[in-house]
Write a protein that binds this DNA or RNA. Structure first.
Lengths: 343, 343
DNA sequence: TTGAAAGCGCTAACAT
DNA sequence: ATGTTAGCGCTTTCAA
């Protein structure tokens, strides 16, 4: 077998010029019906496939959609990435995933490959240099995060945070903490926290923020590093937590299990995302469900429009509804007096 | 700001020819020290970055490593993909993930982009046309699956299947079933099943195969579609399952929870992979741990060697050790007489 | 409607 | 050690 046939080979076989073949391939208007047939026949006969690399060079564009995402070990990222890839593929785009942890290097790859568009998934936006690198050079959409440049598709995070917290408060909890990971916090996380704060304020309660640390043996509570048991046991204890994502909520669940804290009897836990694991009977996590398929579909649709040339259109910012899914990880707080009765 | 600087711009600024600049960029030997400096200065001054697209065209190769994988909603795939991407990135490769479900179309994208190499992750190998498409055209490595063309990096699946089953048998189980999903079965799954069969045969026990169906309300047992409760309850009941992966094992756990079957009292469950979720206290799944980082590292290393030209070297087939991780989902079978005592 | 020709930015023989 | 030159396979004016 010899080399792959090129457009010139097709032209020769069809007895036409390569420009005409090119016109047919790209579906240009100005080609005769009979000519089109002849070209198609030649293409079929040779098994010709356009050379993507050559096409890219002349267009200075690939059909790759870059996806910048946090760790795929967080199931929400994995599930979203999968959906995004599927939608992209259905529109003829390929996806290239880089980890947010790669920082500028990953972005540069995406840029070097002249990506058609970039999706930032749950992007923390920590790195400001990203902006000047990307802005105005390639269509960008932020999913489950926000930025004041580029289009945005998010769930109603603030509302979700509010609803989650309100759910706990309505159950009778007074000591409700918000749990988040400062190393991966994105704009959506901040909006969820804002919703949490609103609900707490509305109920006249003091907000409490819990931060994960690199060690599993300590958590930062309102700025002070503490042992988990001191946070969830004892008189001043937190009786309910709202985590900014299911991944974290499940970590809280696991922590409680290890500390012998009963959920929801002694501790109520609410997450955000509604990942698959949250629905398992033995996880049974109350959470705020995000419309994953919708988030993915819209972000790719927006990107496609931008790529197709709607450059000067105004920034799009879509807000999707969330839904409280009540499961077994939340309940009214145990009365202090009952502790001894039960124990 | 005008267009991005090209190699010609660099050459002009440095007062040299573009070939020399090219030589410097690619780190060729034949360049004078002082020349190298002049070129580097010009590059820095202009902020020049080589045009990847042009480079690809002339080389007819990209530095993309394609990854063909099953659904990322299976955490094992997500975790492995992440590791593979990280290792690839550290060697200067980008990764492009396509879903195995895309079939030939995904592969064709990878081929169109002239991927430097392809990783098949847990590939079912269902599609025979894949082979003629890929073979001899691009270095290929199979991870957690096997094929008689291309290099292979796998855990010792047969041994793992054997060990898992033996663990259950040594606990006293007689009715041990193997659970697998026929729609996603890869060579590793088959090897695990083989290990299971060996252990059963060695103990003089009859093998039982359970297949997931598209409906959660029925499971195929040895070819016969049955209701899950009929399989796990009643006199002929299965008392232990070995699932070919944790994803499936967790589904069994969930099924048991919904049916009110107590694990491990009434049913023992063993998985394979040791995904993160398996280690959670409330999942606490006994499983066979695969060396994920090792699998990823080796597969990329092999690919790199192939890409660097070790073409005519013999096929590599690396077998990595697995480890039984005993957790709380397995125990000795409940004696039939005790059912009523406890119930 | 079709064809001729000029690149896109780079690599790699080959020549100097 | 450095420069000259011919492509890589395609798109896209511009002519015919």
């Amino acid at each position: 077998m010899s080399k792959a046939p090129t457009i010139v080979d097709v032209a020769r076989v069809a007895g036409l010029s390569k420009s005409t073949v090119s016109n047919v391939i790209r579906g240009a208007e100005n080609v005769g019906a009979e000519t089109r047939l002849r070209v198609q026949a030649a293409i079929d006969q040779l098994g010709y496939r356009p050379n993507v690399l050559a096409r890219q060079l002349v267009n200075q564009r690939s059909t790759i959609i870059g996806v910048v995402t946090g760790a795929l070990s967080n199931p929400f990222h994995a599930e979203m990435t999968e959906q995004i890839a599927r939608h992209a593929a259905s529109l003829g785009y390929q996806t290239m995933c880089v980890s947010e942890d790669d920082g500028v290097r990953g972005l540069e790859s995406l840029l070097d490959y002249r990506s058609a568009g970039i999706v930032f998934l749950s992007y923390s936006g920590k790195d400001e240099s990203i902006r000047e690198l990307v802005e105005k050079r390639v269509p960008t959409v932020f999913v489950t995060c926000t930025a004041d440049w580029g289009d945005v598709v998010v769930a109603d995070d603030r509302q979700g945070g509010f609803t989650a917290t309100e759910h706990l408060i309505s159950l009778g909890h007074k000591s409700v903490a918000h749990v988040t990971d400062p190393t991966t916090t994105d704009a959506s996380d901040r909006a969820r926290e804002a919703g949490y704060r609103m609900a707490m304020a509305a109920a006249g309660l003091e907000p409490t923020i819990l931060h994960w640390t690199s060690s599993s043996h300590s958590i930062v509570k309102d700025g002070r590093r503490m042992a988990p048991e001191d946070i969830f046991k004892g008189p001043e204890r937190v009786t309910a937590t709202f985590s900014s994502n299911d991944f974290g909520a499940i970590k809280i669940l696991d922590l409680a299990d290890h500390l012998g804290i009963s959920v929801p009897r002694e501790l109520s836990v609410v997450g955000f995302d509604d990942i698959m694991t949250a629905g398992l009977a033995r996880i049974d996590l109350t959470t705020i469900a995000q419309p994953q398929p919708e988030l993915a579909a819209r972000s790719i649709a927006i990107l496609k429009d931008r790529i197709k040339g709607a450059v000067n259109t105004k920034r799009v910012c879509q807000l999707l509804d969330v839904k409280l899914v009540v499961r077994g990880s939340t309940a009214s707080p145990e009365r202090l007096g009952r502790v001894h009765l039960v124990g």
